[in-house]
Design a protein around this nucleic acid. Structure first.
Lengths: 339, 339
DNA sequence: CCGAGTTCTGTTAGCGCTAACATCGGCGGA
DNA sequence: TCCGCCGATGTTAGCGCTAACAGAACTCGG
């Protein structure tokens, strides 16, 4: 029954024929062009849903040169941080009427990021967000296709693109100062892996506070963000209990590993050792003890980056590069106590 | 310098002119058509990278009617489960040469899912994966655009689409049997929110084992997957300590909440109460005590769903609907002990 | 009641690509 | 030598849409 027996989906011309107008008028209705008579508009609308017509955005993109799609390149979107950032990006993009096409890299290196950007460019995205937490990845932004609007998240501040990030250095300062104020002689640090910008920023802030206070700077232990690596660091630190009274851990997952190692070794937190984490993942509040940590507002980072990117896209001109910094927030819980 | 001073990116015709061939020959080279002389091919290739040409996949999609893009509709990709599933989907899709366009819903209801599917359809995706953990969302699959290949993940098994999911019922059976084998009289359950299919499946498996063993079936406590809701349930359960010796919690995050509540109330795990979680998030191994849980292979779910979807897309015909089930895996750790 | 301006609607061209068909040259067999 | 065939390349048309212009219909003041 009905005229739509063939399987081929209806096109604008079909709607036009049914409504007794030209396809251009249908186009006008769809694009809210002002100069369409109200009666014509409703006639077209009726035809549209009679046929179940949906416009073909591919054809539209071909002629307008705008796909209203944004590309996102990220790394391991299984982790809480990247996952939250990407979520924030997607929400903000969709609120602005854009789609999001995601490439999630297994390993992050310049070539991989470049490939991803290349694919996205072929696909006709209007702009690209690169969540580039590593030096090597951030550098890939240097050879973006000419004229492609882009923004880096958690990336490097030098180079040719705008960057949006949480102030890692400030976060580390907050954490370290807190421990010093509690009366600890110095603060140890379990850092993230080398080459990660966040890891570097946190080391920098930690060291800066210690230096300013004239405290000794212990050697850092290095983890890979995983609870297991924190556990291993915890074992080492536990062996030095007595010397160590305060630890700033570069993320909450590793802090959990430390907590576990300390429990096994009979080291009491916060009585013997105080711990501060970083991220404030949803679990942290329910660790034993609840974790004092630094909250990062990943949602805000996502939204700000889309703001910057859309401004670039919609201006059509290369804009001066911005560096937007989202402040971190100190969250006091039970894993830290006065010496 | 060079011929490429204008800002407009080069098109196939530009390459053709430079290589001294027709644009069709360039197209043939790009698509690995066999009938191109080796020398011509290299000449074209040289022209391509001399100009920095990238093909326009939008134009290609318009004529081939295939965008090589898959749509994914999901819910709160901040959670470990959805995030991991989406990651698996994206990896599998890219390995197969497809892009992934994501819509991440804030709230999940039939209308929202429908809108999302509609947008994706306009955008010209070749197929859609709906991560539909709730009844209401799963139902939206009933009104997919005609002929659109689709697959549901963690969704309902009735209706018109293929479904890939972890066997929730079996997972719950594993957890509950384990506790019974340890000598517990019965097993309490902290379930996920109503309307969630996973929550229902876990209740079903739990209840089935208890019934089969002729044990009393305690009333369930209901959480919302968050650690906080687990914490609240834990407080209630702690008040009943003595009666309660074993709890099967519907996910690891809530189990963490229970652990915290029990610690606060002085209830020892596993000495007084045994706990089994569900998911095996990376943190679970480092809880105190390490959590006995049921592992879901989210990566496998993602891959299988892409398999099913691509088979549909590439056959071009509506295929019979499949129901693929990924087995869960029992992981024994320190939060359970013999009565 | 006419012409100038304003709506509204239609016609044409073309986005960048691939499919389909046309053409051309060279090769082997009768 | 000529024909037929096949491999390599070119030409043409058109995917579904919007931009740009052309034309029709309607307004309104003098």
């Amino acid at each position: 029954m009905g005229p739509n027996v063939d399987r081929r989906p209806p096109v604008m011309a079909d709607v036009a024929r049914l409504a007794g107008v030209s396809h251009q008028t249908v186009s006008r209705v769809l694009n809210d062009h002002p100069n369409v008579r109200a009666e014509t508009r409703t006639r077209v609308m009726r035809a549209i849903d009679q046929l179940g017509y949906r416009r073909n955005l591919v054809a539209r993109a071909l002629v307008t040169k705008h796909s209203r799609t944004l590309g996102v390149v990220s790394f391991d979107t299984t982790l809480y941080g990247p996952a939250s950032t990407v979520y924030g990006i997607e929400q903000a993009a969709r609120d602005a009427g854009y789609f999001v096409s995601i490439v999630s890299l297994r390993t992050i290196d310049r070539a991989g990021v470049n490939d991803a950007i290349g694919y996205l460019a072929e696909q006709g995205v209007d702009g690209i967000v690169v969540v580039a937490p590593q030096r090597s990845a951030a550098r890939a932004l240097d050879d973006l296709p000419a004229g492609m609007p882009a923004v880096a998240v958690e990336g490097w501040h030098q180079g040719d693109v705008s960057v949006v990030s949480v102030d890692q250095v400030e976060g580390a300062r907050l954490a370290t100062s807190h421990l010093l104020e509690l009366g600890h002689e110095t603060v140890w640090h379990v850092s993230g892996p080398a080459d990660w910008l966040e890891a570097e920023g946190r080391i920098e802030g930690w060291r800066a506070v210690l230096t300013a206070a004239g405290r000794p700077i212990p050697g850092t232990l290095t983890g890979d963000w995983s609870p297991r690596s924190g556990y291993q660091a915890g074992k080492q630190l536990a062996a030095m209990a007595g010397d160590v009274t305060a630890v700033f851990v570069a993320n909450d997952q590793m802090a959990l590993g430390l907590l576990r190692a300390f429990t096994e070794e009979g080291v009491k937190v916060p009585e013997q050792i105080s711990i501060v984490g970083f991220d404030d993942i949803p679990e942290s509040e329910f660790f034993s003890p609840p974790l004092t940590t630094i909250r990062q507002d990943f949602g805000a980072v996502g939204r700000r980056s889309i703001d910057v990117l859309l401004r670039q896209i919609e201006s059509g001109e290369p804009l001066p590069h911005e560096r937007l910094v989202v402040p971190p927030q100190f969250v006091f819980r039970g894993s830290t106590a006065a010496r």
